[in-house]
Design a protein around this nucleic acid. Structure first.
Length: 486
RNA sequence: GGUCUCGUGGCCGAGUGGCUAGGCAGAGCUCUGCAAAAGCUUCCACAGCGGUUCGAAUCCGCUCGAGACCUCCA
């Protein structure tokens, strides 16, 4: 029997049994990208991790509403009054919304390549300005924010009198004062830890809107509070995001929600870890921000070859979502080969010879697979067990183990469910192998077999090599020859 | 400086107080005309130093090292 799903709640740093607020419904909010440029492969890992979680929850039968936002309001860069989206727009001489549109589309295309399911709702920040302004007003009315020079700031000190700012990230307000780095430059604030709910816009600022406090734009943390509440309610089950968003972003979100709605918004906080390159977090500024496009084409100085989307997905799934994952050509090549072995075995299951008895224990594999996933979505363990299954399949193929028809059928269902539905791995070596192509290859194999019988090895090797060039790998087994698309 | 995480074999990466992770790479064997594929076997490990324990890579302490966050960040 499958055990209960347990997950690591980063709110209290403990593994907890997953109990939705209103089963079978599950509300899940994940912080999406800011669409001012192409996402990099580290972003793909984050959304891939949540895709795994989403898929598994769906598989367990939950009715999941998965909300992932698009941040299309540019938020401020360091010491300029310019934001990322406006800057990009200025550099490329286009409308900010063109920037947004371009990279939103690009993001969707990318996630589709990596076989990530689209969220149920993908709201945009600019589409929820009224709600954001309302929340700012509510917080102001409660005396937990103040207006200053056309901007509105969250009053951390006032909030902290009755609440605990820093509960998620384990910080306390006093530390935040004393450790605040220099160069804040935000003289409008009463307290260094205060954060903007609404920001006054300079005249040259492009993306700005009217508000009760003047022309400006919303603070970065506001959109997630507003949109999660709007679509999932004041309390919902799961909130996810990258670890780097824990502070200040998620901390501020909690504060806004509690200040505005007087509710503990999130039951389970899930934070995914970073993809690293040479042990360091990927960052464009460090020259380590590899884009999916570069990965897929191999067109990057640090890459020795191109990697397929499924290779990359599989590579990422071989690490737990809460661990950092270090990224190298060697590791990716290992994933490429491993994935191929897995997929070949998966496709072979339905063609396995059956016997009266089974020497394999399908139920045991099943329990191990669910056990792994129920243990905080431990995909690397699940994959390890899938490779156990690969071994069984190969031994049966070699006639060293046996399986009966019922077991073969349940093994096939189990394996396909885990590989395709839960891990989201697709067979990329498209067997565009229509029956006609298969017939042609079988014919070529017959010719090769005859050549071998005639000891015409140069011909048989030539057939083998040519088929490989075309994209089919020949495998001589004990009981004849088979082939696989490469 | 503050908060926190982590240090596993050639590489990536799981895990647990005593029992095989797994993938890739390496070695040997089986199969084979050769190869590939597949199978079997095998080598390589838990940063260092102490402590707790019958027993620790797994718990505690210290040292060294790495990283994340404290500012936009997946």
């Amino acid at each position: 029997m499958q055990t209960q799903l347990k997950l690591y709640n980063s709110k209290n740093r403990e593994i907890e049994v997953f109990e939705p607020l209103n089963p079978p419904f599950v509300g899940m909010y994940v912080c999406g990208p800011t669409v001012y440029s192409e996402v990099h492969i580290g972003n793909v890992r984050t959304f891939g991790s949540f895709d795994l979680i989403y898929r598994y929850l769906l598989h367990l039968g939950y009715k999941v509403r998965y909300v992932r936002n698009i941040t299309d309001v540019g938020h401020l860069l360091d010491d300029t009054s310019e934001d990322r989206i406006s800057k990009k727009a200025r550099l490329e001489n286009i409308e900010p919304m063109e920037v947004v549109q371009r990279y939103t589309v690009d993001f969707h295309q990318t996630m589709e390549k990596f076989n990530a399911l689209p969220p149920s709702i993908e709201p945009t920040a600019t589409g929820h300005l009224i709600e954001q302004i309302e929340l700012v007003q509510t917080i102001l009315d409660k005396g937990l924010a103040y207006v200053s020079n056309g901007s509105v700031y969250f009053d951390v000190a006032a909030y902290n009198k009755s609440r605990n700012y820093g509960e998620l990230s384990g910080r306390n307000v006093d530390d935040l004062i004393s450790n605040k780095r220099a160069l804040d430059g935000q003289d409008d604030k009463k307290h260094p830890a205060d954060f903007a709910l609404w920001k006054n816009a300079e005249p040259q600022h492009i993306m700005k809107w009217n508000s009760p406090w003047g022309v400006g734009f919303p603070g970065w943390h506001l959109e997630c509070s507003v949109m999660s509440t709007k679509y999932l309610g004041k309390q919902f089950d799961i909130h996810g995001g990258g670890m780097d968003l824990k502070f200040p972003h998620h901390e501020c979100e909690i504060a806004q929600n509690k200040a505005g709605y007087d509710e503990e918004p999130v039951k389970y906080w899930l934070h995914t870890n970073m993809l690293t390159f040479n042990g360091k977090k990927m960052a464009k500024s460090e020259g380590t921000g590899v884009t999916p496009r570069e990965m897929l084409t191999g067109n990057h100085p640090l890459l020795t070859q191109a990697y397929s989307a499924m290779t990359i997905r599989f590579f990422m799934l071989q690490a737990h979502y809460r661990s950092t994952l270090d990224f190298s050509n060697e590791a990716l090549q290992a994933a490429e080969k491993g994935l191929k072995r897995l997929m070949v075995a998966l496709e072979a299951i339905d063609g396995l010879p059956t016997f009266d008895k089974s020497s394999v224990d399908v139920n045991d594999i099943k329990e191990k697979l669910y056990g792994a996933m129920n243990d905080d979505f431990n995909s690397p363990i699940a994959i390890a067990h899938l490779f156990e299954m690969v071994k069984w399949v190969n031994l049966i193929t070699d006639g060293k183990e046996t399986i009966n028809e019922a077991d073969r059928s349940s093994l096939s269902t189990l394996a396909h469910t885990f590989v395709h539905d839960i891990l989201g791995l697709q067979n990329e070596t498209s067997n565009d192998g229509s029956e006609k192509i298969d017939g042609l290859i079988q014919f070529a194999l017959e010719l090769r077999q005859q050549a071998k019988l005639d000891k015409n090895y140069s011909l048989s090797d030539n057939i083998r090599d040519r088929l490989k060039e075309i994209g089919f790998e020949i495998k001589d087994g004990k009981d004849g020859t088979t082939y696989n698309p490469i």
